[in-house]
Structure formats: C-alpha cells, structure tokens
Simulated assay, not measured.
Amino acid sequence: MDNSEEQPRRIPRQTRSRFNFSYPNPEPKSLNTELSRNNDRELRRTTRFQNRQAHIIIDKNGDLIFNVSQLLRSHEGATRNYDVQTAKLELDETEGTVATNIKGHVHLTKVVQDVLVQGKFEADSMLNCVRCLNDFATHIEFELQDIYRPSIDIITGLPLKSEDGFDDEKLVIDENHLLDLGEALRQQILVSLPLYPHCGEDCPGLYSELERVNNEDAEVEEYTPAPIDVRWSALKNLRLEE
C-alpha cells in the first residue's frame, strides 16, 4: 500500500505577455489629462519650430536695409550709426513720383524693446509746376524720426503682439531682424515736398502762352450765307409784325 499522500496539482502562475489577452488592462486615463498632454506636446513642437525659423536668414539686401539683431540683444540705450545712400526710391506709384540721389546719416537707438530711428537726409525729385505745368527738378532736405517695432522676440523667437497705439504697421522689424528704412524715408519725403510746387518766383505761368495766342493773327473766314431753297421763297411775303 502506497502511504504517500496525493500532492495537490500546482497551477502555473500567469505571466505578463503581449500574447496574454486575459491580463487585466490598466485603468483608462482621464480624457482631460490626455488633452492636456497633447496640448503641451503641440506647444513644445510649435516653439521649437518657431525657434528654428527665427535663425533662418533670408537673402534680403539693399541700401536701406540694416540687420539690428545685435542691437536688439544689447542693453537699453545702445546705438548704431550708418551712412545711407541710394540712387532711387519710388514715392507714389499712381502718380509716378520718384526721389533720386538720397543720402544722409541715420542714428539707431534701442528704446526698451523698440528701435528709435533718427537722421538727416537730402534728396532730389522731379515735380510739375502748378503755374506753367512744366516739370522741374527740386532739392529737399529733411529730418527723420520714427519708432520701429520688432515682430518676434529676439530671445525666444516667439511672435510679439502689436501694442495699441502703434500707428504704422509697416514700420516693423521682420522675423530676420532686418530694419527696412525705405518706408520711413518715403513717407517723410512726401510730406517734405512743397504743397504747391512752382519752378521759381519769376515763373510767368500760363500768361506768356495766352499772350502768344492773342498776338497771333487768327485767320477769319468771310461768312457767306447759304442759298435759300425756292420752295421756301413764299415765306418772304409773311408779315410777322401783323
């Protein structure tokens, strides 16, 4: 007789496996938590993209374009000085007004996060005389003083919101920290041109042309009445007085 007791059957322990579909699933995460994490990931991704974009330098050159990235990184009150000279600047496309031989000196100053632009300039332009209607060349001298606002933060690369009270949206520093002086010069030249341009104090105006026309002997043709149709000859006998 076998005295050994019957051993209980051992059930193997359930292990974790990707093929073990009976393993209990973890508790589902809250929907708000998932949305918050997705928003955070999207914000970090957008920030990294904008920071990379801020360092992309676009090939934009010109006599009136200046890179002010180092000035924006400097302390408040830092300055830069440049000599400015350009051959031509379109003032008004509809009227075809053009300024030429523009030259001067510009002084840039960092004020808080903006750039103060100051300078003295001179330029030439062709105008139309309001007296004699002839074109004439004029020379003007003017001063420039404007505020330029950066479009992105120099440190983070994030876009900056335009503050209320900033009148001209064209006077901005672009995403590559380039300051275009052309718009400020165009506006200042237009307001510096004379309101009623005339070629000189001794301009005779249109009187000289009128005098020339009046002195010319105009050929006057002798008036010859047209012949009367015989069919209307009976109307001569009418007495309108009666």
Rank of each mutant, 00 (worst) to 15 (best):
I155S: 09
Q118V: 05
A99H: 08
D83V: 13
L127P: 00
I58S: 15
A99E: 01
S30N: 14
L35R: 14
T33P: 00
A78F: 05
Q145C: 12
T94L: 09
D135W: 08
A87N: 15
G119L: 03
C129I: 03
K120G: 09
G157I: 08
R131N: 11
A137E: 06
R131F: 02
A137M: 06
N128K: 10
E90C: 13
K161G: 14
F136V: 02
Y82H: 12
I147A: 04
E27K: 15
A137N: 10
L116G: 04
T97H: 08
N81F: 03
R44L: 15
I155G: 00
I65G: 01
N20F: 00
R48N: 13
T138G: 00
I152G: 02
R149V: 10
Y148S: 02
D124H: 11
N81W: 00
K110I: 04
L116N: 05
E95F: 07
L108V: 00
H75C: 10
Q113A: 10
L72I: 07
A54W: 01
V68E: 11
Y23T: 09
D164W: 00
L116S: 12
L64K: 11
G104R: 00
E143F: 03
L72R: 05
F66W: 09
E122R: 15
C132A: 05
R80T: 06
P150D: 03
T86M: 12
V111R: 09
E34G: 01
R80H: 09
F121L: 09
H55Q: 14
E122Q: 15
A137C: 00
L91F: 06
L64R: 04
K120M: 09
Q50Y: 07
D135E: 15
L116T: 03
Q113F: 07
R45Y: 01
E34K: 11
M126T: 14
N51C: 04
F66V: 15
S22N: 11
T46R: 14
D164T: 08
T156F: 06
L72K: 08
F21C: 01
E141Q: 12
S151F: 03
N61H: 04
S74T: 04
G62V: 10
L108I: 02
R52F: 07
N20S: 02
Q85Y: 02
F121Q: 10
L31D: 12
N101E: 15
V98P: 05
D59H: 13
E93T: 13
P28N: 04
P159I: 11
R149L: 07
E95K: 14
L71T: 04
I102S: 06
A87C: 07
L116V: 00
L35S: 09
V98G: 02
I152V: 13
K60G: 08
L89W: 07
F136P: 05
